[in-house]
Design a protein around this nucleic acid. Structure first.
Length: 453
DNA sequence: CCTGGAGTTGTCCTA
DNA sequence: TTAGGACAACTCCAG
């Protein structure tokens, strides 16, 4: 936008392109967020944002033909289908004598600028970050809002209304889901500020406790470009000067994990579909989708898993620690393919991001880069007791267990009948019986993963 | 060129 | 009760 504004009059457009996206059309939760995000953006552009829907190649071709356009400006995207499409757009523009300018607005380090001494990409995070990224010049400073922005009034009758993009498919659901969020650039700035003020100092330990609220919750803002990683990086560095301890450093590392995911997706475009480590191609996942629906709906009988899956459904978000727990449960205990979980997250998360989602699910499965070893199988009861010791997170999403004494709330099936009765809880009626046995499924996973070697 | 150490996030068993 | 080792294999780099 800055470059376009400096060049002359600007016609700001947004294209919803489901044509080229293939299997990776935006999920339902993301669409709902996008709707709010576009609303906010349009407002900040005096209602002059133009909306389109369809094949971006054709839409841009039509626009440059019918309007006096000298140059087209956009920010780079890194999903394989977008890279391919944008390359086509660029060459078509250049062929027609129209300038095409693309910029980096969403990554701290362009993926092609980071490589090992031998020229091949990193496969391990720490050397990627320390040697590959931190030895480069620091990320650029964020840009100010353009001083002068001359926007062209919408004149083209092809432009659609925001509503015509039909981003809100299921109104009741998204209203409820979005009620805890504020969307848009200004909201993103407020979130960043409040994170710096209240949680950054305790981030290192606090981030592991889902009831604490010590995570930044910036991921959807970053995903939709309401906040750039440059803004976050420099704001955190600035805050670090007034903070004891290494909270800021750990948050910067998390930003770098986001970068690493994009880096992997760029260098291994098959990441969303194929095992990064092809040895896993032979892995014997369970046939069918047994238990998948219970997992999706938060009805597995394991409170921490169910709380996480309900948080996801109700808010479009899940705390990071709990994401690992539910992923380990699906992959290792239920023995379902990581794609099954990735697909559900893709549809339900407001921060759904092809790079992070694919890389993280593969990391949990053990097939990914720098992945968790196969024997690292989370025990949902121990995790719950350790990271939600007071049961506050459980209470938020599984309130039907509130009557149980704390020690049984993490594992209601162990409560004696009289305790259940006193709590007014009927297992299998008010709350599910566990859908599987932790010990035997753990051993099954260990055996199958070991067989890969 | 070789080698040793370190590497996001765990669990279980044994002493 | 608690601490330490086992549970792999591989990538990367510093010495």
């Amino acid at each position: 936008m800055s470059a376009a504004a400096a060049a002359g009059q600007v016609l700001p457009i947004f294209i919803l392109d489901d044509i080229n996206a293939g299997d990776w059309k935006m999920g339902s939760a993301s669409r709902a967020w996008l709707n709010g995000s576009l609303q906010a953006l349009d407002r900040s552009l005096d209602g002059k944002l133009q909306f389109f829907r369809g094949d971006a190649r054709a839409i841009i071709a039509t626009l440059v033909e019918s309007l006096p356009i000298d140059a087209v400006y956009w920010n780079r995207c890194y999903e394989p289908w977008r890279i391919e499409r944008d390359a086509q757009i660029k060459s078509a523009l250049v062929e027609n004598g129209i300038e095409a300018h693309s910029y980096n607005a969403s990554l701290l380090w362009e993926p092609w600028t980071v490589s090992k001494g031998d020229g091949t990409p990193y496969r391990v995070f720490t050397p990627y970050y320390r040697k590959g990224c931190l030895s480069q010049p620091a990320p650029r400073q964020p840009l100010d809002r353009p001083r002068e922005l001359r926007l062209v009034a919408p004149a083209d009758e092809n432009g659609l209304s925001l509503a015509a993009l039909e981003l809100l498919a299921t109104p009741d659901w998204h209203c409820n889901m979005l009620k805890d969020w504020e969307i848009g650039e200004q909201a993103a700035q407020r979130s960043l500020e409040s994170f710096c003020a209240s949680a950054l100092e305790i981030y290192r330990q606090g981030r592991d406790f889902p009831a604490t609220g010590a995570t930044s919750r910036l991921s959807p803002h970053l995903h939709f470009g309401e906040l750039s990683p440059q803004q976050a990086w420099h704001r955190i560095e600035n805050a670090a000067m007034h903070i004891e301890g290494d909270g800021p450093g750990h948050f910067l590392r998390e930003l770098a994990w986001r970068e690493f995911s994009y880096y992997l997706l760029y260098h291994f475009p098959q990441l969303p579909e194929r095992n990064f480590n092809s040895r896993f191609d032979d892995f014997q996942w369970l046939e069918g989708d047994q238990g998948l629906e219970a997992w999706q709906h938060g009805l597995t009988g394991f409170p921490i898993v169910d709380a996480g899956m309900r948080e996801l459904w109700q808010t479009g978000y899940m705390h990071n620690r709990v994401r690992m727990i539910v992923a380990s449960f699906l992959i290792k205990n239920m023995l379902l393919h990581w794609r099954t979980g990735a697909d559900w997250f893709w549809d339900c998360l407001v921060d759904a991001d092809l790079a992070s989602n694919s890389a993280s699910w593969q990391w949990c499965a053990g097939s990914g880069a720098d992945a968790a070893p196969y024997f690292r199988i989370f025990n949902p009861v121990l995790q719950s007791e350790k990271f939600d010791p007071q049961g506050e997170y459980l209470s938020r999403y599984c309130p039907e267990l509130d009557g149980l004494p704390l020690r049984y709330r993490h594992k209601p099936w162990e409560a004696p009948p009289e305790v259940l009765k006193a709590a007014g809880l009927r297992l299998g009626v008010d709350y599910p019986e566990p859908i599987l046995d932790l010990k035997t499924t753990r051993e099954r996973a260990l055996a199958r993963f070991k067989a890969l070697a």
